[in-house]
Amino acid sequence: MLEGKFDQASLLKKIIDSIRDSVKLCNFNCSQNDGITVQAIDDSRVLLIALKMDPGCFQEFRCDRDMVLGLDLESLGKILKQGNNEDYLTLIAEDNPDSLLIVFEDKKKDRISEFSLKLMDIDSDVLTIDDMDNDCSITMPSADFSKIARDFKTMSESLQIIVTKESVKFKAEGQIGSGSVIFKPHTDLDNPDESIKIDMNQPVNLTFGAKYLNDIVKASTLSSTITIKLTDKAPALFEFKLPSGYLRYYLAPKFED
């Protein structure tokens, strides 16, 4: 049996809102030690989502036996809308379940809402992702990166990320012209999350699809910082930390034809 209780329904709502435009169907893998993990690839095979909700994400978590819950995220999203952000949210599944029970509890009133979501058999490719040695790692405020991804998408289909020891530069070239934003490393002692950290072994210059970056920055609601790991001629890793665990996106780059 699985029973996972979130202190705030908003955490799961934000997570599902961050991934459901990229993947529609995915398997939630549940286990006592790892909590709930998800790996899902978008239909175009350009973006991979790796989610890890450790047991620490939950106020209470038990999973007696490993289980896989096949979920339609659009349907799950419909149910999650029914609860309030501050509610307790509990996911309950029996062993070998054909449905997932979702319970919202209001913290002040004696109101309990219960929903049952039908589960699906989802056959999806699982990819092996080894820990990569990265050429660069950038940690910056997620709101800043989100603004760049959203603004530059109006100018160009691609966003170039150029990292040197001194700076990270985001650059877009479109029909109407071009633009760039440069950030230099900076430590904000009063607000550490406002700091910009650049670790560089080798400079990189990579280009990514603006459409995918716009999907990725939907997760900015989950964390005030984002870590971007870049390696020449390899997929980039965009990571948002959860209270315990992470939401990672791996994005394949664009290359000169």
Binding site: R45, V46, L127, T128, T207, Y250, A252, K254, E256, D257
Partner: peptide, 14 residues
């Protein structure tokens, strides 16, 4: 023009 690469060319199927 730039061409979008595919994740399957970087990661192996399990």
């Amino acid at each position: 023009a730039r061409k979008q690469s595919n994740l399957m060319s970087f990661f192996k199927k399990k």
